[in-house]
Write a protein that binds this DNA or RNA. Structure first.
Length: 359
DNA sequence: AACACGGGGAA
DNA sequence: TTCCCAGTGTT
């Protein structure tokens, strides 16, 4: 595009945004801290899912100090069900850095933003453009999809290098006047019009610039290399109760999958190995027996990169083992005080619906 | 550069 | 079912 076309492109884009752009809670504020929270929540998570979490979160942690001082478990509880829990941990870690190094105010330099835990290239650019009105293109999956169609770019968007290419392209398009609106307009188009499958080109304010539309090739873009199939893992979920009927729960390790969240004890099951080894595992670890092979309840939980097949087994006999640091007895009614992954919230629901020896 | 990391919504 | 998503940190 030449300079004149770029001006017209911006005009069409921004004009549409001001009349048809979405009204969202984090667009009602100029507080960089709130915008930061919204951007982190929106990573890999859709707007409608985020809205209630965002409102609750800023109400609970209205200032960087409030978040910095909160117990991590409380932050995770507010994040419960949102997924990618390292985002919450990194956000709090980053806020603590901001409180210590920058007196609680987000810096305005790109390199300083990038040095903060949880702020990567996208979030730094989003903060610069949305909170500080700097002409910085915020390249995410949405923008890459829209721009790959408009300009027929067939580079693999799964590659890191490709993001830089879009960065450069968008840098040439973005103008000084309204950088926040530029980014948010393209995000809104990506989310509501230029969708991955069901495109709605008749509503698109930049249809006249779109080369893919000209060729009817919208669905050929963006090009993205294939993902490997998720692995299947079998687990027994152990329902172990003490004499008061409380359930044994454990806190997961501080790193890795679902870090720091609570769950019922899980025992990996090798599909081709049964019996004695498992029994001794439970005996050693929890000091009780569990019901044998017959399953009371079984279901699968799908993550993006793996699948859990979970089968509930009930503990039997006295529990002698002393609790370890990361273990607790919890009454059924108290489980809601702990952050649980959705996969184990399903277990709680099953208990409530199928067992009657509650405490 | 490749991989780990959740969950919900859409088709 | 399958695919997708306002990414970042680790290896």
């Amino acid at each position: 595009m030449n300079a004149q076309q770029i001006r017209q492109f911006n005009h069409d884009l921004l004009d549409w945004f001001h009349t048809r752009g979405r009204r969202l809670p984090w667009r009602e504020t100029t507080n960089p801290y709130y915008i930061w929270i919204s951007e982190v929540m929106l990573q890999q998570t859709q707007v409608n899912t985020v809205i209630p979490y965002y409102n609750q979160f800023i109400s609970r942690f209205p200032t960087p100090d409030a978040l910095a001082e909160a117990p991590e478990q409380e932050v995770l509880k507010c994040w419960e069900g949102l997924g990618y829990y390292s985002r919450a941990r990194n956000l709090q870690h980053g806020v603590r850095e901001v409180v210590e190094k920058y007196d609680g105010r987000l810096p305005k330099q790109k390199d300083e933003l990038l040095s903060i835990t949880g702020i990567g290239p996208y979030t730094a650019a989003a903060l610069l453009s949305i909170a500080y009105n700097e002409p910085e293109p915020a390249i995410d999956g949405n923008l890459m999809r829209v721009l790959s169609r408009v300009f027929l770019i067939d580079d693999d968007i799964a590659k890191q290098k490709t993001r830089k290419k879009f960065e450069k392209l968008a840098s040439d398009l973005i103008i000084e006047t309204e950088p926040a609106a530029f980014n948010q307009a393209l995000m809104d188009i990506g989310a509501t019009i230029c969708r991955p499958k069901n495109t709605d080109c008749s509503e698109c304010p930049i249809q006249r610039y779109c080369l893919a539309y000209d060729e009817g090739a919208q669905l050929e873009y963006p090009v993205k290399s294939g993902k490997s199939k998720p692995r299947l893992l079998h687990y027994a979920v152990l329902l172990i109760q003490d004499e008061q009927g409380r359930y044994l729960i454990e806190r997961r390790p501080d790193k890795g999958l679902l870090a720091g969240l609570w769950q019922f004890p899980m025992m990996a099951i090798d599909e081709y190995e049964t019996g004695p080894r498992q029994e001794s595992y439970v005996q050693d670890r929890y000091g009780c027996m569990v019901s044998p092979v017959e399953q009371s309840f079984s279901y699968t939980h799908r993550f993006s990169h793996l699948i859990w097949k979970l089968t509930i087994r009930e503990g039997q006999g006295p529990v002698r083992k002393k609790l370890k640091e990361r273990q607790r007895w919890s009454a059924l009614s108290e489980l809601e005080n702990y952050p649980f992954p959705v996969s184990h919230q399903k277990v709680t629901e099953w208990i409530k619906n199928n067992r009657h020896n509650h405490t």
